[in-house]
Lab assay of single mutants.
Amino acid sequence: EPLWIRPDAPSRCTWQLGRPASESPHHHTAPAKSPKILPDILKKIGDTPMVRINKIGKKFGLKCELLAKCEFFNAGGSVKDRISLRMIEDAERDGTLKPGDTIIEPTSGNTGIGLALAAAVRGYRCIIVMPEKMSSEKVDVLRALGAEIVRTPTNARFDSPESHVGVAWRLKNEIPNSHILDQYRNASNPLAHYDTTADEILQQCDGKLDMLVASVGTGGTITGIARKLKEKCPGCRIIGVDPEGSILAEPEELNQTEQTTYEVEGIGYDFIPTVLDRTVVDKWFKSNDEEAFTFARMLIAQEGLLCGGSAGSTVAVAVKAAQELQEGQRCVVILPDSVRNYMTKFLSDRWMLQKGFLKEEDLTEKKPWWWHLRVQELGLSAPLTVLPTITCGHTIEILREKGFDQAPVVDEAGVILGMVTLGNMLSSLLAGKVQPSDQVGKVIYKQFKQIRLTDTLGRLSHILEMDHFALVVHEQIQYHSTGKSSQRQMVFGVVTAIDLLNFVAAQERDQK
């Protein structure tokens, strides 16, 4: 057995438009009618409502009807409940999964919650491996369901041993009777949507819809739904939504950006999952974080739909894509998950301010006199920076000697690579993860907040409520011999709460 199987392995699926269902090699399930009293909570997966979006479509000038398939009504709160249950049931049916076995899954959280929910009911041990950027709410729900959680670096490539995929496979090879159901490759993922989600949409719309818009992560949702719609409703256009920084969209030119990270969760990847059939997507749109969270908040405030950030991405694209539809036509959007997962993220004004998705003037509360002053007023001194090749031991000596707790790590040209902190280095040394002679590049981390000289002290204040420091950066445009230009970030300084307090105190003292 291989040590790991690539999540982007070539698909062996034989589905073709027009091929009889009787030739399918898979076990198919028909939607079942729910009894009045459910035998367990797993029976509350599927049969989610279709809700008309009344205000947002009109606000953006849509002539067509805009409908939302509300997947956050599933038992675990997301569309991923469907595939989690289906993968477990299919693994039980073919004898792969037996009582007492362990389920391991690399996930952005929602599939993990679905699997942990099913594992709690069915009696399996469950280990979820997820990147650090995923919300604390997801972690809390997983723990409450009895799952064990392993976190991995957000910026690790999918084929790196440190990625959530790599760590999951390492655990599988170490733990007896453990299984990775593997949402990236498992046919049960798109089949769950082909058999149930798509049929529900067709039934709820009486077979009449002209466009379907869905955000894409593993691709199982859009693949399964689109294949069924292509068979039953061939005139329906399928629109895929991919965040900026991901590479799922086609044509490839759409993916060209210097951005590699994004805040919206559960969609987009740096590889093409095996289950994603991009041939059934008629057109791709890219979405960005700001519009995703703005539209998610709009869905909550104006439509009462308590959905997550990827739902915002989907609707932001839908109001663009559906401009081509006329009166009497219908566009369906998939709202994948609930706001429950993001209470401390985009639902929080403070978080939105820190990330730059909300401006101070958007909030009406009274601010102190210094709130709208610029960061450049602080008069920061030149920063202490270190090269990635310097040793951890030497870096600790320098920081202690100069009285700093942290320093930016830059390359020879001064471009920011990340940050090192005294606390992080000492804990890594004590844990045996690094040696004093190791290069400081081994303990770089990139989960820090950046701020510009033109940003306000109010925004800085919000950042420092949650973080010990902020890195002050400025952009530099560099022209190359080819005539092309590129933008790079340079370090201007490091600012802490002490710097802000000293500035405010000094100004008030001078005024007296």
Rank of each mutant, 00 (worst) to 15 (best):
Ile239Met: 15
Thr261Gly: 02
Phe503Gly: 02
Lys345Val: 02
Trp284Ile: 02
Gln406Pro: 02
Leu429Arg: 15
Gln487Arg: 11
Ala505Tyr: 08
Ile390Ala: 02
Ala292Gly: 08
Gln326Leu: 02
Met419His: 04
His394Tyr: 12
Val495Gly: 12
Met352Tyr: 08
Met466Phe: 13
Lys433Thr: 10
Phe285Ala: 14
Lys355Gln: 09
Ile396Asp: 10
Gln406Arg: 02
Gln256Lys: 15
Ser246Tyr: 04
Ile477Ala: 13
Tyr342Asp: 06
Ser428Asn: 09
Leu358Phe: 10
Lys286Ser: 02
Arg278Ile: 02
Lys446Ile: 08
Arg330Gly: 02
Gln354Ala: 02
Ser481Asp: 09
Ile390Arg: 02
Arg278Pro: 05
Met425Ser: 02
Glu508Leu: 14
Val319Met: 13
Ile477Cys: 09
Leu353Gly: 06
Arg350Leu: 11
Lys484Thr: 02
Gln478Asp: 04
Val420Trp: 02
Ala316Ser: 05
Leu417Gln: 10
Arg340Cys: 02
Arg340Thr: 05
Gln302Cys: 12
His468Pro: 13
Ile396Thr: 12
Val315Phe: 09
Ser486Pro: 04
Gly418Ile: 02
Asp499Phe: 02
Glu244Pro: 10
Gly432Phe: 10
Glu465Thr: 02
Asn255Trp: 07
Asn341Ser: 06
Gly309Phe: 04
Ala413Lys: 14
Leu276Gly: 06
Pro243Trp: 02
Ile300Arg: 02
Ala497Gly: 09
Val473Lys: 02
Pro436Cys: 14
Ala296Pro: 02
Ala382Glu: 08
Val332Asp: 02
Cys331Ile: 08
Gly240Ser: 02
Met490Arg: 13
Leu457Phe: 10
Val375Met: 10
Lys402Cys: 09
His474Ile: 07
Gln450Ile: 14
Thr344Ser: 02
Val280Phe: 06
Trp351Val: 02
Asp455Gly: 05
Thr482Ser: 13
Val241Phe: 02
Ile463Val: 12
Trp369Ser: 04
Thr496Ile: 11
Leu373Arg: 08
Leu363Asp: 09
Pro368Cys: 07
Glu377His: 06
Phe469Gln: 13
Asn341Val: 02
Leu471Asp: 02
Thr274Trp: 02
Val420Pro: 05
Leu422Trp: 08
Pro336Lys: 02
Pro408Leu: 02
Thr257Trp: 10
Pro336Asn: 04
Gly268Met: 02
Leu325Gly: 02
Gln256Trp: 11
Val315Met: 09
Gln439Pro: 08
Ser428Pro: 14
Gln489Pro: 15
Asp277Gly: 07
Arg374Ser: 10
Pro388Leu: 14
Pro243Arg: 02
Gly328Glu: 02
Val443Phe: 13
Phe285Asp: 09
Lys402Glu: 15
Glu377Asn: 02
Asn424Ala: 14
Ala318Leu: 04
Lys484Cys: 15
Glu253Ile: 12
Leu306Glu: 02
Glu265Gly: 04
Glu258Asn: 14
Val434Cys: 12
Arg350Cys: 07
Ala382Gly: 11
Phe448Asn: 15
Val410Leu: 11
Gly423Ile: 02
Asp362Phe: 12
Thr421Gly: 02
Ile272Ala: 04
Leu429Cys: 11
Glu365Met: 15
Phe346Tyr: 02
Glu508Ser: 09
Met343Trp: 02
Asp337Val: 02
Glu412Asn: 08
Leu248Pro: 02
Tyr342Ser: 06
Thr421Met: 14
Glu244Leu: 02
Ile498Cys: 06
Ile272Asn: 04
Ala470Asp: 05
Asp438Cys: 09
Thr482Ile: 09
Asp438Asn: 12
Val494Ala: 11
His462Val: 13
Val280Cys: 14
Ser485Asn: 02
Leu501Trp: 06
Phe295Tyr: 10
Arg452Cys: 14
Ala318Val: 04
Phe357Tyr: 09
Thr395Arg: 07
Glu508Met: 02
Thr389Met: 13
Ser348Lys: 12
Leu417Ile: 14
Leu353Pro: 02
Gly403Ile: 08
Ala296Tyr: 05
Gln302Pro: 02
His474Asp: 02
Ile498Tyr: 09
Leu417Ala: 07
Thr274Phe: 02
Gln323Gly: 13
Lys449Leu: 15
Ile239Ser: 07
Lys512Tyr: 02
Phe492His: 15
Ala407Cys: 12
Leu353Asn: 04
Trp369Arg: 07
Thr314Asn: 02
Ser486Arg: 13
His394Leu: 06
Leu306Val: 02
Glu291Ala: 14
Leu500Val: 12
Gly441Cys: 08
Gln256Ile: 10
Lys320Asp: 05
Gln487Trp: 09
Gln406Leu: 07
Val386Met: 10
Phe271Leu: 05
Pro368Met: 07
Phe271Ser: 04
Tyr445Val: 11
Ser485Gln: 08
Lys484Glu: 11
Val375Leu: 11
Phe469Ile: 08
His480Phe: 11
Glu303Ile: 02
His474Ser: 10
Lys446Arg: 13
